[in-house]
Structures are given as structure tokens and as C-alpha cells.
């Protein structure tokens, strides 16, 4: 995987994905390893994303790498009208790997084609966010001991949520049974469901969250994203439709864990946070180990 770009989760084979998770486990045991002291990591955030950017910068710092970059287009030459191509070609002169987030779909693939150094996609518009998928896989594996044969519930906006689409695609490699909870208007798109069927796996669709709680190993909650709705009335109708409260978790399996890509609004009550089944903050921490594993692997230090 040395010098390879990671744009879409499918750019890595199942074996390569598992290899990254294994390396990440090593960093969880021993997070401070100064193996990238001679490297420069560029983090180019053409749109703001505090969590993802800080997680990458934390990962790079723990490996001893220097970090350069910007956290919004306003503070880059983009505000002067520079093209993405020119920004990438320039920054690639100053760095060994580029981590980028950009509001346009497909921008990361394009950047990887013009860049002489590898590119890690930290989110391109509504398209892909592969490091989120890897950290979700890591969190599932860590809490369940395996990725195979699990029952996984996805709850909320299954139509527009790219994390749900990518993670679903990735999990079809592991004989997962999918429990899909969403309002009628936010169901999982048919191309993703077709992919599940092609792998001869099962999915079940629900509108009621309570129905799935006792039967699943993972509940993956998502935020209903206001910015995806063109009609504010439609958003008002569904915004509060799912609210996971601590009392609802009675009768859930002992091994069950709750994941959420964060930020959370009101879909998980704060009274769930102290329940040992709440795993979303550890999940965010796992993102640092996974990103350490990616940086170290792509820069050839491991």
C-alpha cells in the first residue's frame, strides 16, 4: 500500500482493509511512535471539518510528522480563484502525502490523478469518506471481536448519509445482516440494496427503532442532515423522528454497542452517554489509530 492513494474504500481489497485494522490495533497499544519524523503531511481542508482534520493532525503528530495546511478555503489561494489542480501541484512540492476534504464530489479522485504524492480522501462532497469507514470497521471489530456474521442496524438518514453507504458496502464482505431503520422518505438507495442482494445477504427495513434494539449487535445512529433537504417542511417532519434514550436499551444484547459518526444533535439522548453500551466517543478515538495506520503504511514506514 506504500505510495497508494485512498479515495474510495474499494481502492483497498478486503485483505488490505484488514491489514490496516491490524496495524491500527498496534498503534492503539503503542500510540506514540516517532516513525515519520522526516515526513511532512499536508491537510488541505477546502471546507471545514474540525473532527476529521484534528484527528488526522493528531495521528500525524503522534508519529512525529510535521503538519502543514489550511482549514478552510477562505484561508487558501482558492479564495483568489486558484484551481484545485494548481493547489494540489503546488502543495505536493511541500509534502509527502496530502490529506484533503473538498465540497465537490470526485475532487479527491481528480487530485490523486494530478498529484505526484499520494492523496488520502477525508471526504469529497457527498461521495466518499473512506477513513470514516475504516474507523467504523475498526470499532465494530474491536467491540465484537470479529467483523463476520453480525447483525447491524443503521438508523436515521439512510438516503443521503454517505457513511452509511460506504460502511454498508464494506460490510457486505463479511456476511452481515442489515437492519435498516429510517422514515419512508429517507430509505437506503436502491443501488446499495442491490449490492447487498448481489452478495446474497439479507436486509430488513423498519420505520420503528424499538423493533430492532433487542436483535442487533451494533446500532449505528446517524444525524438527519438539515443541509440535504431542499424543502424545510420535509426536514421539520423527520428531524426528531429517532431519539435513542437510555430506557430503550433494556433488553438489548449484552455485546450490543452504539456507534455514531458524530456530530450528534438529538438522535441520542445524553442519558445514553454513561451507559457502557455507548461507544461513539471511543469510536472517534479509534479514528486516530486508523489514520496513524494509514499514514504510516502509505508513507512506507511500516
Amino acid at each position: 500500500m506504500k505510495n497508494r492513494s485512498l479515495i474510495s474504500i474499494n481502492d483497498f481489497t478486503k485483505e488490505e482493509q484488514i491489514r490496516i485494522l491490524d496495524i491500527a490495533a498496534g498503534f492503539e497499544k503503542n500510540p506514540i511512535q516517532k516513525i515519520l519524523e522526516s515526513n511532512v503531511v499536508a491537510t488541505l481542508f477546502f471546507e471545514p471539518s474540525t473532527r476529521t482534520r484534528l484527528s488526522f493532525e493528531s495521528a500525524a503528530s503522534r508519529l512525529g510528522a510535521k503538519v502543514i495546511g489550511f482549514s478552510s478555503s477562505a484561508s487558501s489561494s482558492v479564495s483568489k480563484g486558484e484551481s484545485l489542480k494548481d493547489t494540489i501541484l503546488t502543495v505536493s512540492n511541500y509534502s509527502d502525502v496530502i490529506v484533503m476534504r473538498h465540497p465537490k464530489d470526485g475532487s479527491a479522485r481528480y487530485a490523486s490523478e494530478v498529484s505526484p504524492v499520494p492523496v488520502i480522501n477525508a471526504g469529497d462532497g457527498a461521495n466518499q469518506h473512506p477513513t470514516q469507514t475504516l474507523l467504523d470497521m475498526y470499532s465494530i471489530k474491536k467491540t465484537q471481536g470479529t467483523l463476520d456474521n453480525l447483525h447491524i442496524a443503521f438508523v436515521g438518514d439512510l438516503k443521503y448519509g454517505r457513511t452509511v453507504h460506504s460502511l454498508t458496502m464494506a460490510l457486505t464482505q463479511f456476511n452481515t445482516t442489515f437492519h435498516l431503520v429510517s422514515p419512508e422518505e429517507l430509505k437506503l438507495p436502491s443501488y446499495v440494496k442491490r449490492h447487498i442482494k448481489e452478495k446474497q445477504l439479507n436486509y430488513y427495513q423498519y420505520t420503528d427503532l424499538l423493533e430492532v434494539i433487542p436483535n442487533v449487535d451494533i446500532i449505528y445512529m446517524t444525524r438527519i442532515q438539515r443541509e440535504r433537504f431542499s424543502d424545510p417542511m420535509e426536514y421539520e417532519k423527520v428531524k426528531n423522528i429517532y431519539n435513542l434514550e437510555n430506557s430503550m436499551l433494556e433488553g438489548s444484547k449484552e455485546n450490543m454497542r452504539i456507534l455514531h459518526p458524530l456530530p450528534r444533535i438529538n438522535e441520542i439522548s445524553t442519558d445514553v452517554d454513561n451507559n457502557p453500551k455507548a461507544y461513539y466517543f471511543q469510536q472517534a478515538l479509534n479514528g486516530v489509530y486508523v489514520r496513524q495506520a494509514l499514514l504510516a503504511t502509505i508513507l512506507g514506514a511500516i
Binding site: S83, L84, K85, H102, P103, K104, D105, G106, G125, A126
Partner: peptide, 14 residues
């Protein structure tokens, strides 16, 4: 032309 208005090919010369 890509039908997705948010596609990068619709905002840069690609």
C-alpha cells in the same frame, strides 16, 4: 457531461 451538478468535472476544466 456528468449529470451531478456537484461533480468536480462541472466546476474545473477536467
Amino acid at each position: 457531461k456528468c449529470f451531478n451538478p456537484n461533480c468536480i468535472t462541472n466546476s474545473e476544466a477536467i
